[in-house]
Amino acid sequence: MIIELKDVKKEYVAGGEKIEALKGVNISINRGDFVAITGSSGSGKTTLLSIMGCMETATEGDVRIGNRDVDTYSDREKSLLRANYISFVFQNFALMDKYTAYENIELPLLNAGVKRRERKKRIHWAAEQLGIKDQLEKRPREMSGGQQQRVAIARALASSPQVILADEPTGALDVDNTKKIMEILTDINKCGTAVVVVTHEKEVAAYAKRTIRMEDGCIV
């Protein structure tokens, strides 16, 4: 079991009003899983993803990552989980504009303490997998949306994570690029990495082995 959530609740206070984003969610992500989380806007799917990635903490319930309760992880350990156990792919690519593609891919490897030579090897391997080897010295603004998302996926892939959490990874892409990106994620999944994709597109969800639908903070 890579990630396991049991009866997880999440509450926010916004504008003095209490909002229940998750109302007792149960989900488990296993090795080799390809899960699509679908649902309308505000259904809680992104909150669920951020709790899975230790970016947020649950108000109630158990969250276990790597068979260990996340509450027992220190902040540094949670950061290290995000550096080499869990990786993210975001809709807006989340690339740092001032850094080259190479340096963007390098970020989690630096944080994981990977040595220089090994970093270089892994970056080139990931770039080759994604077909962006000739783009490594470019900055994000010099690339197309599809290329930027490939760099983002290469960054997620380079640290050899157990799971990739992708939040609307094709939301900013055209049909052609959507297809290519989903094929890349499918290939990654075939190599054993679990993939969790948050999406509201049926075509994207169709690539997943399992689809979870969310409505009003609950899995339906």
Binding site: G53, M55, D75, R76, K78, S79, L80, R82, A83, N84, S87, F88, F90, A94, L95, M96, L107, P108, L110, N111, A112, R155
Partner: peptide, 11 residues
Amino acid sequence: GIKMAFGNSKK
């Protein structure tokens, strides 16, 4: 946000 998502802690 990006740095935190990819392994940096707030500290």
